[in-house]
Design a protein around this nucleic acid. Structure first.
Lengths: 271, 271
DNA sequence: CGATAAATTGAGTTTTGTCAATAAAGGTGG
DNA sequence: CCACCTTTATTGACAAAACTCAATTTATCG
């Protein structure tokens, strides 16, 4: 299966990268000859990022070739590296709660894939080759040294994860799902900040909400009204109170289960 | 207007940040008392990112308060800093070719805004407050030192910009616009890599394209067929040849101008 | 207190998704 | 190397979700 992923040599390479004692390969300085595929993006990323002569040996060993349909990494795996595409192509995707797939992007030679998770985190998306593909693998751990404790990486990857969730929402969810996801997200963020997750004030207008979720203002309004009629929440202008968070989550997550009529009971998975 | 944006003190602060000689303020070490708003996200980001005692003085001066509806930054401006929300809330957005606005995200206390552009680059989005809001401002230049020449920042911000374009596409464009944007993007990326921008092979299936663009496979197929009937492109399975790139771009950019009938001439803005 | 902006609600239209059937391509094994 | 099977793509008919247009009500701000 996975022809990707560094083998037992990882540890040694890591030592080389982290300024280890090994000082051998000074003659492999012409690394760009071996990395011509990355030229279009300003030359070998390895050299750009890791200006270390020892990197040459590392790059030679970091190259991997995958055949069509092989995973480079999968959602949930522990992430320790990102990749630069040398040749071929890939797609990254995530899987919705109901098992549907959402493609997040396609990657061509020179592109970087796998930056939406940082060291010690788990992959937030999967990546699979679309054809025979050659990749260069870079450990986060090295960047972390440069980026001072990986806080910067953490922040940027969080931003990416949020963006990806928005993409998922826009591409796969209907109006109900989008509004519910939006409210659930807000609630969670308020809770994380020590505020109430069930009652809060919207700081943005209906216009803004619609503009964010790719919906017309009228649809936002109607959907909120319907949610209220169904007892999921109480809404008055900017004031929102979530009465049935379980149902809200259910609407947010699952695309198939529509939430049309008030008399039609929606099965809850809690209580 | 802009109560944000550091004044003439910038230069001094920058020197402090970059490890300048000034060693005064050692008593202001209890910075977290002043930054309680950031606690929910793991404490003051300034201390996390810039573990420098001198940072305290900087943070004191980096704080700014904006009233509702004020821009923190605008698309196109030269970017030299990012911000942490201390209190209040903001939205970030970008403007489509036809002047419509696409909200990219809402930001609450503790959130980081403005990382989708790096030093020397221009802002790729705008940010405006939704209410009275307090922010902490951080210069990229300091991160750049840590992140080794800002290459990491450049790469992550490129990824974010691509994500934001996808969001824009999903939220504001119809099927025609999405397919056209998708093809135009591919063409540009191939050109940037030295390949032909007018004729290429799709490495992904119709399924993947639909999954990426939030469309059903059938819609992808139908749209491509219609584009071909209109003479915009030639398509045969995975082979694509763009015959009229100007029109393709026109379809990609503008939401209003539908592209329905073949006999209806579409005005070109070139030639 | 009036004027402007925001929000709600209704009716009709349209784009796109779903279901279904067919055609073509690619891969596998005899 | 060919036949078969599976996957991928195309095309048509219908249904439905969401948009647009329009009118009304309710806030918000000066």
């Amino acid at each position: 299966m996975a022809t990707l992923g560094l083998s037992v040599h990882d540890k040694n390479l890591e030592q080389i990268l982290r300024g280890g004692a090994v000082m051998k390969i000074a003659q492999t300085i012409h690394i760009d000859r071996q990395c011509h595929a990355c030229d279009p993006r300003g030359g070998c990323l390895g050299i750009q990022l890791l200006d270390n002569p020892d990197i040459c040996e590392y790059l030679k060993q970091a190259k991997r070739i995958s055949r069509k349909g092989e995973h480079v990494f999968r959602e949930g795996e522990v992430a320790d590296a990102f990749f630069v595409v040398r040749s071929g192509s890939l797609k990254s995707y995530l899987v919705t709660e109901d098992g549907e797939e959402q493609v997040l992007g396609f990657y061509l030679p020179g592109d970087v894939i796998g930056l939406d998770s940082t060291e010690l985190q788990h992959r937030m998306s999967s990546a699979i080759t679309l054809e025979t593909t050659s990749l260069c693998r870079f450990l986060y751990i090295y960047l972390a040294d440069k980026a001072q404790g990986s806080n910067l990486l953490r922040i940027t990857s969080e931003q990416m994860q949020r963006d990806h969730n928005l993409v998922l929402l826009l591409a796969r969810k209907d109006a109900d799902g989008r509004i519910a996801s939006f409210l659930d997200d807000l609630a969670c963020r308020y809770r994380a900040r020590g505020y109430s997750a069930s009652a809060f004030l919207l700081s943005m207008s209906r216009q803004d909400i619609g503009c964010y979720l790719g919906l017309a203002v009228e649809t936002v309004s109607r959907t909120l009204t319907r949610f209220q009629e169904c007892g999921v929440l109480q809404v008055n202008r900017r004031e929102v109170e979530i009465l049935d968070h379980a149902t809200l989550r259910k609407i947010a997550g699952i695309r198939g289960d529509r939430f049309m009529e008030c008399d039609k009971d929606v099965e809850l998975d809690s209580a």
